[in-house]
Design a protein around this nucleic acid. Structure first.
Length: 476
RNA sequence: GCCCGGGUGGCCGAGCGGCUAGGCGGCGGCCUGCAGAGCCGCUUUACAGGGGUUCGAAUCCCCUCCCGGGCUCCA
């Protein structure tokens, strides 16, 4: 039974979708005006793991993500470059999609652009005005936070503290905490006609409109990074529940912790950005995903190249043992005590791995279970040449599960092509010959040349063995 | 200032009333032409500080200190 932390109740709750085993999940997507960084990746990989887990556990998941392509920052950046805002947005949306692909994120069912849901946004605002949750002024349409009782509940704020503000509020608003649903803008700027005049939607309304378009008044999981809980998610919830009269808008509100660098969150304003593509030039997606999985999704995660390197080494050890395990001969003889022990250990390992994930997606604990199982396996391999077929099947199932949820194994665990196998065995045979003739310089040169191709050669007592090490993204 | 999270061994990071977490790094050993990986041993009587509750506290309660985030740009 899956249990998840719900930000709304601040408790771990049993996960039960609104209808049967169907799960509607929405995650706040990017504002596409620049390259995404590894803080964004942390969030998207976290939800990817949750999505993979849910599907693996038998849920029928529909995963929806918005693309914010209407936004002041996009407009500003486009003006600087002398291009149309939607052109600029398209360009960075393309880069974002490339990043997702390179991060092995394929779990999103539908991406929805704000610019393509203006009608729905306008309808939603109309509804809010009719029900008395919004009011019109000379600068736009605003949400009346006082009319919506539970405002502040999600982020745990009292009404009086909500009026505190850093930026001078629009003077036509009734209260500082009221927020824009529609902003009137000059016709020279990007915008659309509306019953209230030419302009653009406010920050929060696109998400609500998109969710309600595809999911109706309720969804199961609403996700995003913790920094969005206020005011963004607070506002989304208010808009939706006010408009539909149905509560809760989202059954579970899930928030990911932020990625920090030297203790501070990664953000443009601090100038401590490392882009996804920059990291993927040096480390594989699998290594980065392992790094993320090694801390809990709600905890802040401190990025450093050293920490990523440590993750890479840990993953390397896992792959090495797994590879060795699968390369051994299979024995179909009756199980002896040790064989039975291995089988049992792998079986309980797999179930403990699942239990860890069921506990609010505790990936660090799940990884420790994996290490534990592999250490046991490695010990077995120290003193046994072959692997009982039952244990082999159990191990394969375990690794397949790990990979389908976490996506941390690179080519090393995929079946390689026959041609590659044959070519490598040819090369390694020649190299063996060189070694037996003590021509080590040439043998070592071959090993290091293969290594730079992503083929790691390891000489063991039983002969040379190779595996494809993590594949870095190579962009032409 | 107010509101949320946190502070666990050299580093990362689970645990959240009793049971060796795990990983990375370092040192020694086995194996080995070298490298790598693995195995064995050590680093390991760690839980910010101070009070309390309890037979028993990293875990519960109170106080203090420190760090991160939010307080209408943000994944």
């Amino acid at each position: 039974m899956l249990r998840v932390y719900n930000s709304l109740t601040r408790k771990i709750e049993e996960f039960a979708p609104l209808r049967g085993n169907r799960v509607k999940m929405y995650v706040c997507g990017p504002t596409v005006y620049d390259y995404a960084h590894i803080g964004h990746a942390r969030t998207y990989v976290s939800y990817d793991v949750m999505a993979r887990y849910l599907r693996n556990a038998g849920y029928s998941l529909f995963y929806l993500m918005n693309i914010t392509d209407v936004d002041d920052k996009i407009i500003q950046r486009a003006a600087e470059r002398g291009v149309h805002p939607l052109e600029l947005a398209k360009e960075f949306e393309r880069y974002f999609m490339e990043d997702l692909r390179d991060l092995r994120i394929e779990s999103v069912n539908l991406f929805a652009r704000a610019s393509e849901h203006i009608d729905e946004i306008i309808d939603l605002i109309k509804g809010l005005l009719e029900k008395g949750f919004a009011y019109e002024t000379s600068t736009g349409v605003y949400f009346d936070t006082e009319a919506f009782g539970p405002y502040g509940e999600l982020s745990g704020r009292e009404p009086e503290e909500l009026s505190v503000h850093r930026i001078e509020p629009d003077p036509t608003k009734r209260r500082p905490q009221d927020f824009a649903l529609w902003k009137l803008r000059p016709e020279t700027e990007l915008g659309w006609d509306s019953p209230w005049g030419y302009g653009r939607p406010g920050w929060h309304i696109e998400d609500t409109a998109i969710i309600m378009t595809y999911f109706g008044p309720q969804l199961d999981v609403h996700g995003g990074a913790i920094e969005l809980i206020f005011p963004h998610h607070e506002a989304e919830r208010a808009q939706a529940e006010a408009a539909s009269g149905v509560a809760p808008f989202s059954r579970y509100w899930i928030h990911t912790g932020l990625l920090t660098v030297e203790g501070e969150k990664m953000s443009k304003s601090l100038g401590n950005i490392i882009s996804i593509r920059e990291v993927l030039r040096r480390y594989s997606a699998e290594e980065l995903r392992y790094f993320y999985a090694s801390s809990h999704y709600r905890s802040p995660v401190e990025f450093s190249w050293e920490n990523l390197e440590a993750a890479s080494r840990a993953l390397d050890g896992i792959e090495s043992v797994a590879q060795e395990f699968r390369s051994r001969d299979v024995s179909s003889e009756e199980l002896d005590d040790r064989g039975r022990g291995l089988l049992e250990h792998l079986r309980t390992g797999k179930s403990r791995f699942i239990s860890a994930l069921e506990d609010d997606f505790n990936t660090p604990l799940a990884l420790s279970v994996l290490h534990d199982s592999l250490r046991f396996t490695a010990r077995y391999l120290e003193t046994n040449d072959s692997v009982p077929e039952e244990a082999r099947a159990e191990g394969e199932a375990f690794f397949a599960l790990v990979n389908s949820v976490l996506g941390v194994f690179s080519g090393g665990l995929e079946p390689s092509s026959q041609l590659l196998d044959e070519v490598l065995s040819l090369i390694l045979n020649v190299r063996e010959r060189l070694r037996s003739e003590k021509r080590y310089e040439l043998a070592d040169a071959i090993r290091s040349a293969l290594d730079s191709l992503g083929i790691r050669v390891e000489d063991t007592a039983g002969g040379a063995r190779w595996r494809s090490a993590s594949r870095r993204v190579v962009r032409r």
